[in-house]
Write a protein that binds this DNA or RNA. Structure first.
Length: 307
DNA sequence: TCCCAGGTCCTAC
DNA sequence: GTAGGACCTGGG
């Protein structure tokens, strides 16, 4: 395998913030200072630092890895210009922007992203990583790597559409097994065409992802759909509302909403997300990314302080 | 042992 | 239309 090194120095990339931000789940740090990371992108294994991405393994012989990595880290996004699009009178967001500058939106494969966030339902991040790793080991392809450790590509929809219930349960999917199998069958059969969502506006993409077949269990609600729209289709208006962001909205932004509903029904979800879009504008998804990072890190710091 | 986690679905009203 | 509760499981 020829040595392929992609230059990242123009990106202002903070790998620790970006690769451990809950957008992607197939990365781990290689040193305690969290400056070197290793992970899988579209069947290729990379080592990443602030300055470069180095290909260390792949199941493809020839491929434009430079293009793959530039796209993955959303190289077209200019952070300074995005930051300047936010309201200046927001101390919480401003503190997050300066503290985590270099946190970038990932543009990952929609299929992998969809399954990952279905696996995220009612789970914490280590548990999501475990599920995805198990699925990849069981149903993915072994990646030929220059490193000793074994790694596997993310399984195709076709592979997961044929998976047995017990095997999915052995991958620790729990009740999510039927959701994963269902969407795999839907994608494999062409009933859900993820590719066409690239050209759709945000709201049409949202409807496409959360549409149901005769009320049948699907596993994709507004939160999962927003994550997929933001982290793979790069629809930057998407503002995923999870338990962390809801705590943040209640504490800092609830006065902007006429009355903050207690229960997050679909209707309430759409109302709150729309309010946040009105506040943060076209790049609301970037604001969500930074706010999420801040409240999650602050929570870790606080729980350590209490211990 | 209990509680919670990047939610969604079903039932009853 | 919506509140209440169930759901697998690992980790703190």
């Amino acid at each position: 395998m020829t040595s392929i090194v992609v230059n990242l120095s123009d990106l202002e990339l903070d790998p620790a913030a970006t690769l451990d931000s809950g957008q992607v789940f197939r990365w781990r740090h290689l040193n305690e200072s969290r400056t070197e990371w290793m992970g899988i992108v579209s069947g290729a294994q990379f080592k990443v630092t602030r300055k470069v991405a180095t290909l260390v393994g792949s199941d493809r012989n020839s491929f434009d890895f430079d293009e793959l990595i530039s796209r993955y880290f959303s190289a077209g996004d200019r952070l300074e210009s995005i930051f300047s699009s936010f309201p200046s009178d927001d101390p919480l967001l401003n503190s997050a922007l300066s503290r985590f500058s270099g946190l970038r939106l990932i543009t990952q494969d929609p299929w992998e992203c969809l399954v990952s966030f279905v696996c995220s339902i009612n789970c914490n991040i280590p548990s999501i990583k475990l599920k995805i790793e198990n699925l990849s080991r069981k149903y993915g392809k072994r990646i030929d790597s220059s490193l000793d450790e074994k790694s596997y590509s993310f399984p195709t929809a076709r592979a997961l559409s044929k998976a047995e219930k017990n095997d999915l349960l052995n991958c620790k999917l729990g009740f999510r097994w039927r959701y994963v199998k269902f969407i795999a069958q839907k994608v494999a059969a062409g009933d859900l065409d993820l590719e066409k969502i690239y050209s759709m506006p945000y709201k049409a993409g949202l409807s496409e992802l959360i549409s149901k077949d005769s009320g049948k269990t699907f596993g994709v609600g507004p939160k999962v759909a927003d994550c997929v729209l933001l982290y793979s289709f790069h629809k930057s208006e998407a503002f995923p509302l999870d338990v962390w962001i809801m705590k943040c909205v209640k504490k800092y932004y609830s006065t902007e909403l006429n009355k903050l509903p207690e229960k997050l029904t679909l209707r309430n979800y759409l109302f709150i997300a729309e309010s946040m879009r009105e506040r943060f504008g076209i790049n609301a998804g970037y604001a969500q990314l930074y706010l999420y990072e801040k409240i999650r890190r602050d929570s870790v710091t606080q729980s350590k302080a209490r211990a």
